[in-house]
Write a protein that binds this DNA or RNA. Structure first.
Lengths: 338, 338
DNA sequence: TGAAATAATCTAAACGTTTCGGATATAAAT
DNA sequence: ATTTATATCCGAAACGTTTAGATTATTTCA
């Protein structure tokens, strides 16, 4: 492999001069600069990034520890988000280091290890929890990070989030406009901030129409299709079942649809079901899923860009970005011919 | 940050001795070894991995460039595979570098860049193509890699693959046993090896029962739900439509189910539809999907382990692993009460 | 003409490891 | 009493960069 030294020998200049020529410093004469750049090109020189990192004391790498339960994890949200983060990172010359860890002790260990080993310059955080130990830790250690989501009470960090309250109000308005009054809900663990936000949005949206969310109509699901399926069955087994089920994410909504169909109901006629996220699958299910759209790929890119700017010490034009999601009305909430 | 030098000053030994003590060399007395290890522990020493990498001329990092079209990529296959790779890599002390690139020129560039910059010690390759330029290149450059999938004619590299022919024969036998004779198929671009293999399996499986796959019954889909939906509609619009549709992956099968349902058909009674992969969603759709299961998470781990062993120069007990997938019979191929 | 400014280049140290080849001291063997 | 072996340890170089500061040569200005 070609090094600066090789070039310096070839052109008869010092390593310093070669380095400075290649980095465009202006204390190298135009002539030698050209000469050195030519030689480097010709010899196929590629800087050794590890040596650069050692010298610069930077890793040019960001970390993304995906919080996921169990090996059979296959949330479309993550693949799309990951693509957004990864492509932005590579555009900005950063590497992306990923691993997966179930939320909890092992996860915190993973963060500490990555920091202790100075393996990354910063973190991408998703799926925030009410009182998020990851964020508290990172803040305490003054380690750079950027977040998709918010947390309970502090906001002294950069984040992008979707306005879940707004999104759920759209859903509430839509369902009410279809005539529903008994409405069930499948929400994830309320420790998850986005669950809390969406639930709050639903409640306030319904309250605006003087509708309450009854306790037995409100179940906790694990965000998977299976969770949605099981909880929907539980809800529908109520002696006086709701006419609409609001799931807090698409995957659970799809499970709920299956459950309703298994019970012999026609979704969109006998019962309305809605999701949240608008994953690509939502459009091609039967019936297609009424849901709330958010641009996950772009969000991944935005969070990544925020993080990298933070790492580079650049000013952020906006530290907090709140996106308005949009309601996508499809068939699962009510047939067109209704 | 604590360095070897700091420790060496503290304990009054040379940097060399400290390094060797910490790495368990036996030319350091038990006594000093203990002492140094104690001091290191107490001072919270963490080796600087970048310095180690520079010195060792290794990156301890593997690369995974996910071949994906477009930003709205959300194939559950990848998230699960990624988790398998990532966790195995971290168990073995390696970092995992990921990026996404659409197959083609930009993708090859990405490989060359990662190699040229010596950013990784090896690659994970998936979704092999008939004549895979990635693999040819990597072989030519003698750069380590391990593959999920095979290619057309050479096999002088390590891979794990599922026996797609076997899997599809299971499907064929199953469908024939249900009485089907007119069978349609949605396969991906035949450039993709797994598509070719599965298609071959289906054809040979049907041929064993003297059934041919008619040209107009055989469509090419893009692996997404949408692709399955569109191609299924095309197939079913035939004046003499098939009674069963075999999709070469689950996502397309789900799309096909939606299409059939949109046409007013009851899947599992009026038409049988099967998938391949057994993604987590398959179990909780309505009807649930008959498909072929393969342990994607484990495969990710296996491929990763193969790669790392190759990098470390360790002997592989098996260079080629071919897994027998298993047929999972659910509702979409035919109701139990049939 | 001499001092000061500028341009072009270089030396050497630094980043934090690992490791080769001694060096020293003690113990064992002749 | 000299050699030989063994156990401990250390100096220095190496990995490939970047950069602070010094040096030299050239130009500019008074």
């Amino acid at each position: 492999m070609i090094t600066l030294k090789d070039i310096s020998i070839k052109v008869g200049k010092s390593i310093t001069t070669v380095s400075r020529a290649l980095n465009g410093y202006d204390d190298v004469s135009q002539e030698t600069k050209k000469m050195i750049q030519g030689a480097a090109e010709e010899m196929g020189y590629r800087p050794n990034i590890i040596a650069q990192r050692l010298q610069k004391q930077k890793t040019d790498t960001i970390g993304f520890i995906i919080p996921t339960f169990g090996p059979r994890f296959s949330d479309p949200f993550f693949s799309e988000f990951l693509a957004g983060v990864g492509n932005m990172a590579s555009d900005l010359g950063f590497d992306l280091l990923v691993s997966t860890q179930p939320p909890g002790e092992k996860e915190y260990k993973a963060y500490h290890k990555m920091m202790g080993d100075r393996r990354v310059d910063g973190f991408i955080i998703v799926r925030t929890r009410r009182n998020d130990e990851r964020i508290n830790d990172l803040l305490k250690q003054d380690f750079p990070f950027a977040v998709f989501g918010r947390i309970e009470d502090r906001n002294d960090f950069s984040y992008v989030d979707e306005d879940g309250v707004y999104g759920m109000r759209q859903i509430a308005d839509h369902l009410v406009s279809l005539g529903h009054t008994r409405i069930g809900c499948i929400a994830p663990d309320p420790e998850l901030m986005f669950a809390a936000t969406r639930l709050e949005g639903l409640k306030s949206g319904l309250a605006a129409h003087d509708i309450q969310l009854n306790g037995s109509m409100h179940k906790v699901g694990d965000l998977t299709q299976k969770g949605g399926y099981l909880q929907a069955k539980a809800i529908m087994s109520d002696p006086n079942p709701p006419t609409a089920i609001v799931a807090c994410n698409d995957l659970m909504a799809l499970g709920a649809i299956s459950a309703a169909q298994d019970l012999g109901l026609e979704v969109g006629r006998d019962v309305s079901i809605t999701g949240f996220d608008d994953i690509p699958l939502a459009e091609y299910t039967h019936p297609s899923l009424t849901t709330v759209h958010q641009p996950i790929y772009q969000i991944g890119g935005m969070v990544c860009e925020m993080l990298i700017k933070t790492i580079l010490g650049q000013e952020l034009e906006q530290k907090h970005i709140l996106l308005k999601p949009s309601l996508i009305i499809r068939e699962s909430s009510g047939k067109n011919n209704r």
